[in-house]
Design a protein around this nucleic acid. Sequence first.
DNA 1: CCCTGTGAAGCGCTTCACAGCG
DNA 2: CGCTGTGAAGCGCTTCACAGGG
Lengths: 263, 263
Amino acid sequence: MTVDRGTRPARRPVPTTRAHEDDLTPAGVDGGHGARPVPEATVARLAVYLRVLTTLLGEGRGTVSSEELAAAAGVNSAKLRKDLSHIGSSGVRGVGYDVSRLTAEVEATLGLTRPHAVALVGVGNLGHALAGYGGFAQRGFPVAALFDVDPALVGTTVDGVEVEHADSIPRVCAERGVTIGVVATPAPAAQQVCDHLVAAGVRSILNFAPTVLVVPAGVEVRKVDLAVEMQVLSFHVARRHGTVPAAGPAATPRQTPREAVSR
Amino acid sequence: MTVDRGTRPARRPVPTTRAHEDDLTPAGVDGGHGARPVPEATVARLAVYLRVLTTLLGEGRGTVSSEELAAAAGVNSAKLRKDLSHIGSSGVRGVGYDVSRLTAEVEATLGLTRPHAVALVGVGNLGHALAGYGGFAQRGFPVAALFDVDPALVGTTVDGVEVEHADSIPRVCAERGVTIGVVATPAPAAQQVCDHLVAAGVRSILNFAPTVLVVPAGVEVRKVDLAVEMQVLSFHVARRHGTVPAAGPAATPRQTPREAVSR
DNA sequence: CCCTGTGAAGCGCTTCACAGCG
DNA sequence: CGCTGTGAAGCGCTTCACAGGG
């Protein structure tokens, strides 16, 4: 349904509340059958469960309980069971989950039954490290193409893949069936690179550049921002030390008292 | 992005309710009572606002409206205003926010008024790239120490910082007042490294290793897991291609509310 | 008018607690 | 009995809509 807020023109709808379109009866509806969407939060955790399951498989474990799997994944067991219920999994009561079967179910849900060709744009400091990161190909995400604009890099190969000029993005991505793009360029170049990837048909993008990427509806962007991560940690450091200053001119008399420990 | 708020200490699976209040905190962001905590989700966005504000400052902008700032940060304006209300900010009605003042307020809230010494453990592929990533020092997070266990790396310098053996973590971290640790080791080593950091007094950790770190209460862990990010994208690719119900070729009924701004 | 700040409603995720099956 | 699957309650974040100051 294409969100597109931001262009909202002062929203002057009918005076009263918006007509409710949900006929959800509170009690028994159960959401109907089938088309139950997997919550976004669940999807991220499925990937974590999968990692644990892979380890268990390697150890030859046949079954695993929700309690054990949850502990290994760092969540509580109720959440894990709820997550698995979203993918229609079937454990055995009194026993647990069949490891190999659950592994297959999670992989199927995550769309990992076949590889996804990845294009990585920006072979600088970080990009180079990402390209060399074995975890990609190993987990079903072969790096099918590398791009940069630096003439000193174009033509070189990283881990057996040739670096091509960013101008080739449309052609190369189409040729190699790239479905996922990774942006590891400096911030100023990121939006343009993103636009090229989208034009090339890439609908899923992982953004390492410290910029908000604007994309059309239907394109999924996830971002990894090191500065944000560090600053969030900084916030917690400051909070612990009680040094969170109340901003403003003598306003906000409330001050976080010391002894505020959590997590 | 992989936020993972609330890393649970993975306590023993006690069947019934826990009677001990030993160390588990009541799941709030704020330990003390009364003080209105800044929501975790808000903290992450403040970092994004700050980046935009810094740009605006550089352009000499004096004021900015919530609408404009929100658009640049990829959120809607109501959310932005709510976020700013949590830090006790004060805009001017009919005008907007004073850019330099708001910048200072956000920085103060995030605890960026003074630098945070960072220790980076694991100077491999990724770790090396992170160490060389200018964004760290530039944004107030000087890399004060580098550690590894590889004899071939120990003794070398990266970006002017000497790589020391991981055994030195406690001493060096204490000496240099490290408050934030970054774990960029292979998965098997991560937990041990984490334990050392915690023992050295580090209370905030950014984890790049694909493992769940178990830490005592009071230690904040954020994780960045590339495999998880890729697999989440894979899920959306699969969903689009009809492996999972609910999507037609034209209208995606359940589009994740990412930024979909037209400009 | 323009904009901010905010109570209140809405929504989704988390947690609880237990029914129910092996 | 042990353990899964799930209704229902709980909680926090998001969104709405408007009061109110400049």
